[in-house]
């Protein structure tokens, strides 16, 4: 394990210092996911062209998180907003950032159809298995048996279905030009690699890219640090397998 001696680890240049420290709860996964995005924006040198879209729920707390153009909306409509912007100005690199409620429930039609149309956009979705900002209700990704505000006796899959497998669904409906992966905030280097691949797919003009990140919500899970990591690593991965699910075919021309 590498020990970091610097007390102030480098903040991505694309982060907006004025809005730091950020507004997420201690232990929240959003900061890690957005650090991955920030470092990728820096490494690819695309801050000037990037439009960061965020949704309702905790993701909206990131409306001024970056030193890049940002737009905040709600209900998963972040996808059509950035898709509309990309269609109007293809020079932009657009990212729609949202939670599982926005992407898999109230805005699911936007995710499905943007993926089907192979929109030249990147969707980053944090899966923390609850509606967090509204106070911890059942989300599409809530695990069977998991206690939430609206499943006080634990989620019953018979009555409410199984957790949504978002990346698997997106992979099943996209063309071979799409990139789809599921990472976790518990493995930063791998998550960052996925995010980078996703953005690069858009930069190459290949098409839709989608990364889900398993993300902790200690506040709504009522877990301490150890329990949080354990829930992420041991419980969530039982239902949500990690890894790249779809890697786009790259033509010989593109390889050169």
């Amino acid at each position: 394990m590498q020990i970091i001696h610097d007390r102030n680890p480098a903040m991505p240049k694309s982060w907006n210092r004025d809005s730091k420290p950020h507004r997420f709860c201690p232990g929240c996964g959003h900061g890690i996911f957005l650090k991955a995005l920030g470092e990728v924006i820096d490494e690819l040198g695309i801050a000037e062209r990037t439009v960061f879209g965020c949704d309702i729920g905790c993701s909206l707390l990131a409306w001024d998180f970056f030193n890049v153009d940002s737009v905040q909306t709600h209900h998963g409509r972040t996808i059509p907003v950035v898709a509309g912007a990309k269609r109007a100005n293809p020079e932009l690199i657009v990212v729609a950032y949202m939670g599982d409620g926005g992407g898999y429930a109230i805005g699911a039609q936007h995710l499905v159809n943007a993926a089907l149309r192979n929109e030249q956009i990147t969707v980053l979705l944090a899966n923390n298995s609850v509606y967090a900002m509204t106070g911890g209700q059942m989300a599409p990704t809530t695990l069977p048996g998991q206690k939430t505000g609206t499943t006080p006796y634990g989620r019953d899959p018979e009555a409410t279905g199984q957790p949504t497998l978002g990346p698997e669904m997106v992979a099943a409906i996209t063309s071979d030009r799409a990139y789809v992966a599921r990472g976790t905030v518990a493995n930063f280097p791998r998550l960052k690699r996925y995010v980078k691949q996703a953005i690069e797919n858009q930069l190459a003009g290949r098409g839709f890219s989608f990364v889900e990140a398993l993300s902790g919500c200690p506040t709504n899970w009522r877990t301490n640090a150890k329990q949080t990591w354990s829930y992420l690593d041991d419980e969530m991965t039982k239902y949500f397998p990690l890894g790249e699910i779809k890697v786009p075919k790259v033509s010989e021309e593109e390889q050169q």
Binding site: V71, T73, H75, R77, I79, P80, V81, V82, A83, G84, A85, K86, R87, A88, N89, L92, Q109, H110, V112, N113
Partner: peptide, 26 residues
């Protein structure tokens, strides 16, 4: 000029906003 048929009216409306924000008469 451009056109996009979306999956529903919500998407059409929000994509219009995206187009306008990108500086186009949408």
């Amino acid at each position: 000029r451009g056109f996009l048929q979306t999956e529903d009216e919500l998407s059409a409306g929000f994509a219009t906003l995206g187009g306008v924000m990108a500086g186009k008469k949408a």
